[in-house]
Design a protein around this nucleic acid. Structure first.
Ligand code: SF4
Ligand code: SF4
Lengths: 152, 152
DNA sequence: TTAATATCCGACTGCATTAGTCTTGCTTCC
DNA sequence: GGAAGCAAGACTAATGCAGTCGGATATTAA
């Protein structure tokens, strides 16, 4: 349940890597793939998607590659996931639109939308800068996390 | 991304229905299925699963059916989802165990586990009793929801 | 006792999504 | 011009989900 796709997973890893290597200029897709042992061609497409979504800037040619389009603390995990996996959410009805034929009878739809929003907010409160701390909690993360309240 | 399975969806609807009809005694799987236009045989299996998980009590025979094993406010959405969809979570590594071959190199695993826990807590704060209010937020729900803080 | 009602259980199929690959073309720098 | 790199789309294999089918067992009412 609620499984994140591996692509989004890879995307987050790549973004983290790019955030760490921000000083060293652009990094090629191959570099990132080798650093984490991710299938290179797959990661390439993920990075392309991320670039198209405006989260990365790309530069073709020799010594080209990808770099963050914004500072790491301005890119939320929610944006990344949405860019890669698309805008689909926990219930089939919210975004798939016509998939569920129970729109009339379903009485649980509204509450679930609230849950959906809560998760969305939770993910929006996480930034790639929060991922780079190696082991112990960074003081920034505690601040950035914030609080998510849920009231149905 | 993060899509809830329809089975879990149906399960929540059924539980809500059973909570509402708690006074009328046991309800058969067919009754619930007809009330919401859910494929009867599919719902039957979901209810069986729920019963096996201890969330429902079942009674075979004429005038038999299912009823809540506990009061509605003691059954969390998390339990329901877990019972139906199994214990899998947002990343492939957390519960699938051997699926991801990046355990060594992956540096993003720990932060994601925290996110995972936050979502789990969020879902644990929602009970089926919070779903029965038709339109406006129930006062109980605001209390029951609580706060979920996330700190990486 | 019999028949109707209902849960229980496992196997099965069709479909959608996901993970990953291949191929081809375009851009930039040297 | 050629190497390094991005861009883009088609393609395949595998997985998981939604839903179905068939039959077995338990309970109750007549
Ligand atoms: S059953 Fe209700 S909540 Fe679930 S997908 Fe259909 S309309 Fe949405
Ligand atoms: S890439 Fe990392 S976080 Fe994702 S499944 Fe593999 S080990 Fe877990």
């Amino acid at each position: 349940m609620l499984r994140l796709t591996k692509k989004a997973d890879y995307g987050l890893m790549a973004l983290k890597y790019l955030a760490e290597q921000a000083d060293s200029g652009a990094q090629s897709a191959k570099d990132v793939a080798e650093a984490y042992h991710i299938p290179p061609q797959l990661l390439a497409k993920i990075l392309q998607t991320l670039a198209k979504a405006g989260l990365l800037v790309s530069h073709a040619g020799t010594n080209g590659g990808y770099a963050l389009a914004r500072p790491a603390q301005d890119i939320s995990a929610f944006e990344v996931i949405r860019a890669i996996d698309g805008p689909l959410f926990i219930t089939s009805c919210i975004t798939i639109h016509g998939t569920c034929d129970l729109h009339g009878t379903c009485t649980i739809k509204e509450p679930l939308r609230k849950v959906n929003d809560s998760i969305k907010e939770l993910l929006s409160g996480i930034h790639v800068s929060d991922l780079i701390e190696p082991a112990e909690a960074s003081p920034a993360a505690a601040l950035a996390g914030g609080l998510v309240s849920i009231a149905l």
